[in-house]
C-alpha cells in the first residue's frame, strides 16, 4: 500500500495501463508538457512522448470524434475534456455516434474508449455556470455508455483501469473537489469492476444512496447522526451506469429507510431515478417515504453563498435522514 491522492491515483492508473498496453493513448487540451488543466497527466508526456500524449486543438467535438474513430480502428483512446461542462460540445459524438456505434452497426465494431472529465463544484474556488456542473445526468440517460464517478483514490485508480480495459465507451467523471483527497492505494495491479457499488459505511437505521463528493458529505452526516442513534449506511454507487441495484436493494431491505443524494439537478436526475428503483424494488420493506436530496433546478451561480443554496449541503442530508427516520 502507498498513499496517493485521487489525482495521483488516476495518473498512476493512466501510466500503468499505457505501459501495459501500447494501444492506449491520451488526447486532450494542454495535457502534454503542461500536464492538463488540473495536472492529471503531469509527467506522462515525459514518459510516453507526444505520440501517445497528444495535445489537441480546442475542439471538443473532434477530440471525442477522433477518439471514437481510433477506437473502432483498434486503439484504446483515453480522451480528456478539460471540464465536464465542455463535453457539451462533444455531446453529439459521444451520445449519437460513440454510444450507438456497436448497436447501430449490428455488432460489427466496438468502441473501447474512455472520456475523462472533471465535474462538480469547488465552492469557494468555483468558477460559475460552465465550470461546476455535475454532468452525470447528461450521460446516464444514454444506452451504450457506461458512466463512472469514483469517490476515493482506491476506486478512482481501480475503476479507471477497468474503464480502459472495457470494450465500450466509458464516461469517467472525476470530482474536482476530491482531487487532493489522499488515501491508501495498493502497490500491485488491481481493478475495481464496473457496475459494482460499494458500502462505504455500515449502518442499520437508514440507507444513503449517493456518489462522488456527496459520499463524503453523507459520511460526515453519518457521524453526527450516530450521536442521535441513527446508524446511516452509506452506499457509494461508483458506477452510475450500469447500476448495481442488488447492493442498494439489499441495504434498503435491511434498514427499511432510504435517502437518495445527488449533486446534479433534481428534475430528470439520478437521485429521482434511484428513488424510483428503490420504490419499485423495495416497497414492501420501506417504513417511510424516501428522502430526496438533489440540486435545485438553478444553474450553478458564481457567488459562493448562492452556490451553497443551489447545491446539496451536509445540513440538507442531515435534515432528510432525520425526516425519513422520523427524528425530525
Amino acid at each position: 500500500m502507498h498513499k496517493a491522492t485521487y489525482k495521483e491515483a488516476i495518473r498512476e492508473g493512466l501510466a500503468e495501463e499505457m505501459r501495459r498496453d501500447s494501444s492506449v493513448f491520451l488526447l486532450g487540451e494542454d495535457i502534454g508538457l503542461h500536464g492538463g488543466a488540473f495536472g492529471l497527466t503531469k509527467g506522462l508526456f515525459a514518459e510516453f512522448g507526444p505520440e501517445r500524449v497528444r495535445d489537441t486543438p480546442i475542439s471538443e467535438s473532434i477530440i471525442a470524434g477522433a477518439a471514437l474513430g481510433s477506437a473502432v480502428a483498434g486503439l484504446r483512446p483515453v480522451a480528456e475534456m478539460m471540464f465536464g461542462d465542455f463535453s457539451a460540445i462533444a455531446y453529439d459524438q459521444i451520445v449519437n455516434a460513440a454510444a450507438k456505434a456497436r448497436f447501430q452497426f449490428g455488432g460489427q465494431c466496438k468502441a473501447p474508449m474512455v472520456v475523462r472529465m472533471p465535474v462538480g463544484a469547488l465552492s469557494w474556488k468555483s468558477a460559475g455556470v460552465v465550470h461546476c456542473q455535475s454532468v452525470d445526468n447528461w450521460y446516464v440517460q444514454v444506452p451504450g455508455l457506461k458512466v463512472v464517478l469514483p469517490s476515493t483514490p482506491y476506486d478512482a485508480k481501480g475503476l479507471l483501469k477497468s474503464a480502459i480495459r472495457d470494450d465500450n465507451p466509458v464516461i469517467f467523471l472525476e470530482h474536482k473537489a476530491l482531487y487532493e483527497y489522499q488515501d491508501e492505494v495498493p502497490d500491485e495491479d488491481y481493478v475495481v469492476p464496473l457496475g459494482v457499488a460499494d458500502v462505504k459505511r455500515r449502518g442499520s437505521t437508514c440507507t444513503a444512496v449517493t456518489s462522488g463528493k456527496m459520499v463524503h458529505f453523507a459520511l460526515k452526516a453519518a457521524l453526527e447522526l450516530a450521536k442521535e442513534g441513527i446508524e446511516l449506511e452509506v452506499i457509494d454507487i461508483r458506477t452510475l451506469k450500469p447500476l448495481d441495484e442488488e447492493t442498494i436493494f439489499a441495504s434498503v431491505r435491511k434498514t427499511h429507510h432510504a435517502v437518495v443524494i445527488h449533486e446534479g439537478h433534481r428534475t430528470g436526475g439520478l437521485a429521482a431515478d434511484w428513488g424510483m428503483r428503490i420504490y419499485t424494488g423495495c416497497l414492501d420493506w420501506l417504513d417511510a417515504r424516501i428522502g430526496w436530496v438533489a440540486a435545485h433546478d438553478v444553474p450553478i451561480p458564481y457567488n459562493d453563498g448562492l452556490e451553497k443554496k443551489v447545491l446539496p449541503q451536509p445540513a440538507d442530508i442531515l435534515a432528510a435522514v432525520r425526516e425519513t427516520c422520523g427524528a425530525a
Binding site: 461542462d85 465542455f86 460540445i89 468558477a127 460559475g128 455556470v129 460552465v130 465550470h131 451561480p301 458564481y302
Partner: peptide, 21 residues
C-alpha cells in the same frame, strides 16, 4: 454575482456577454 469574470454581460453598453466556453 451570478456570472463572474468569465460570464459577465452588460447589455446596457452593448455587451452580449463574455462566454467562458
Amino acid at each position: 454575482g451570478r456570472g463572474g469574470s468569465m460570464h459577465v454581460a452588460a447589455f446596457e453598453i452593448g455587451s452580449l456577454g463574455a462566454y467562458a466556453m
